[in-house]
Nucleic acid binder design. Structure first.
Lengths: 231, 231
DNA sequence: TAGATTGTTAATCGATTAACAATC
DNA sequence: TAGATTGTTAATCGATTAACAATC
């Protein structure tokens, strides 16, 4: 920890080392930059600037340049950024150079919707398996995949080589399923279950809780009506 | 801005003033604390501690106490926190004392799933309207509500008094719909569309992008395989 | 050369952590 | 009183911002 900025020779090894040092907050914004670059590319532009890209991504140009500087120096002063090249660099930085295999556990309403969500396949992932505990759902085909029983979870992970899982089970079973996923070798979990998940340090959890998001919006809504309305 | 800690007399007025000063990061964790308290209450406990509550919420006890201190002094030294009372205080702080009205725009796969998501109603919100642009969907009943046409959006906001909207439209129309929502008086937007939304300063946006979340997981996955595996 | 735009530095700001005095 | 646990302080840490030198 605390790798101090050196004068900066040896290119490749530096890039590899620095990847470790990309701040969390920056990593969280990289997907937005990638999205912005894809929009720019779709418009046919070959070159872009921190001003344009930042505007598209909804951040300040200073923030964007700072963030990109953690990945390397991929722009040209006085000129801007090559859209295709920067896109490639961010793709590599995010680990999307090769497609990641995703397993979805819990094929209820939400799981069903996510399985059919095109954005997943379009942005570097393949859905490789579906698992559910409900016998009425097991065996049905969703998004081109046959739903497999919860009892086979470990086997499905092993067979598919999934490293990332999407968890859309009821909260009551989320921790148990998560433990099984981790034991089977999954290292990233995106959970929609409204409960905290405990995982070992080598596993990464991202939690999306729709009700929590609404509650955060409610706070600001309230603050607006109660407070004097300053800014 | 920058209200300096005063010696701390006058209780009620202070609570109201300080609500303005709750840090963003703290606000983001309050829903988790509320959830943890609800679990604790369900277990029949009347009293809890920062240790227990923090464990349930997945944070450190120091973090939890610091966060709660921004709301006021609702615990008793040497004793702990009264579950019901703290729950009430956080509920009030989040602006959930009275139910917030939510409008959902975009009744596709995901919108359908969210409309039927029980967690929304259970945690302080009422779904008051559904809007979609597709004539095949308009007029159908989902989650007990009749889907209304996109052309009536402003009228639906006015009639229902919705202040918060959930946006599950395609990215291509998200900004336009968002503008209409804001013009109609909505002050909080939870969007699932994979694009940055521009809103005036008095409006709050929370964005959930499933593919972005997966990409963030991919980054850590990659860092794990490339890096030496330090921590 | 003049104008444009990056990459980096340094200053500021906000969040987290740890320790402990207050107090039940 | 002794033990427990909060609420607060101060130190640390990380993130953001703004300005500008480097350089195309």
């Amino acid at each position: 920890m605390g790798v101090r900025r050196t004068s900066g020779r040896d290119g490749v090894r530096r890039a590899a080392r620095e990847a470790q040092a990309v701040p969390h907050a920056t990593v969280g914004r990289l997907p937005g930059y990638l999205r912005a670059l894809e929009e720019t590319a779709a418009d046919g532009a070959v070159l872009t600037s921190s001003d344009e890209l930042a505007a598209r991504a909804g951040v300040t140009p200073a923030q964007l340049r700072k963030d990109l500087s953690f990945l390397g120096s991929y722009g040209r002063r006085g000129v801007g950024y090559d859209v295709g090249h920067l896109r490639e660099q961010i793709t590599v930085a995010l680990g999307l150079a090769d497609v990641r295999r995703v397993l979805l556990v819990g094929v209820g309403n939400l799981g069903h919707a996510l399985a059919n969500y095109a954005g997943i396949a379009e942005r570097g992932f393949v859905l490789v398996g579906l698992v559910d505990a409900d016998p009425a759902v097991v065996g049905t085909t969703v998004a081109g995949l046959v739903v497999e029983p919860a009892a086979d979870l470990a086997a499905v992970v092993a067979r598919t080589g999934a490293t990332i899982a999407v968890l859309t089970t009821p909260a009551a079973v989320a921790q148990r399923v998560c433990d099984e996923l981790v034991a089977a070798g999954v290292v990233g979990v995106l959970t929609f279950a409204p409960c905290a998940l405990r995982v070992p340090p080598h596993v990464d959890v991202r939690a999306v809780d729709v009700a929590s998001e609404l509650q955060i919006l409610a706070f600001h809504d309230r603050a607006r009506s109660v407070g004097g309305g300053v800014s």
